[in-house]
């Protein structure tokens, strides 16, 4: 296959970026998209140029490291797949492909296609956990969890934290990411003690990071490589409303674990 690439090049968070054109004349259709970029980088290095910087790690769609916008779509043309899972057979001979980083105020560009998503870590840090220390715990079967609830929690917990939801949203909202974690923990009996404080502080942190609000475009759900449903945003909104009705001191107290 012959492919023409327009790749976003940007030498640092503050630098001005632009598209750079590369032509590849011998692309194997079984290649993954990132293997195609590997091959391109080998050519660039051999010809004395500066290879394209991009994040990737597991290359099987679970670590959430890879993050490009391909032809205007986060993670490219696949359905429920990450950039690393895209195969070149998704494109046609002679295609032009535009590759950009995820664009969001919350995800500063490090270089070229690489962005930082530490904002997501800070949202988790605000309450996306169950406060337990390591050590002896009640037996896993002491609290039965209905199959349906465990499956529903798992549907939410599958989020890989890639940020495609933010990149896809016209408002740059992180509500699918946040809603998934709030729902995963809020569905389980173990997550009940901190349910109120959790949703309150995670949503507040999400706002502080500069992510926008949800206005039901549902682009996030469409772009999500794990197919996480926007019903979890609805669930989070209901929890948030309930939390707002609680006394603020009480919520604060719970968060600090008193």
């Amino acid at each position: 296959m012959r492919i023409k690439l327009h790749i976003w090049r940007q030498n640092g968070p503050q630098a001005k970026g632009d598209f750079e054109v590369h032509q590849l004349d011998d692309v194997d259709e079984d290649m993954s998209f990132l293997e195609m970029l590997d091959v391109l980088n080998e050519e660039i290095i051999e010809s004395g140029g500066d290879p394209v910087t991009f994040d990737s790690d597991c290359r099987e769609g679970i670590c959430g490291a890879c993050s490009c916008v391909i032809n205007g779509r986060p993670h490219g043309p696949g359905h429920k797949s990450t950039t690393c899972q895209i195969r070149m057979r998704s494109f046609n001979d002679g295609d032009e492909i535009w590759i950009e980083p995820f664009r969001s105020r919350g995800f500063p560009v490090v270089k070229d296609l690489m962005v930082d998503r530490e904002a997501f870590d800070r949202i988790i840090r605000a309450g996306g956990f169950i406060s337990v220390h390591s050590g002896p715990k009640p037996d896993a079967n002491d609290i039965p969890i209905p199959h349906r609830i465990a499956e529903e929690a798992m549907d939410a917990a599958e989020c890989i934290g890639c940020g495609a939801c933010v990149a896809a949203c016209p408002n740059g909202s992180a509500m699918l990411f946040t809603g998934a974690k709030v729902s995963h923990l809020g569905l389980l009996p173990q997550g009940q003690p901190e349910r109120v404080s959790r949703v309150k502080s995670m949503v507040d942190q999400m706002d502080d990071e500069g992510f926008g609000a949800c206005t039901n475009y549902a682009e996030c759900q469409d772009a999500c490589p794990k197919g996480i449903s926007i019903r979890f945003i609805g669930r989070m909104n209901r929890d948030y409303l309930k939390a707002s009705l609680c006394e603020p001191e009480k919520v604060q107290g719970q968060l600090k674990g008193h």
Binding site: I130, V132, A140, H147, A150
Partner: peptide, 18 residues
């Protein structure tokens, strides 16, 4: 037990056991 307490959603049977 540790992971269950942290909220790891292990697969469950219909009766609710792991």
């Amino acid at each position: 037990d540790q992971a269950t307490a942290q909220g790891v959603p292990f697969a469950r049977e219909y009766g609710g056991n792991v």
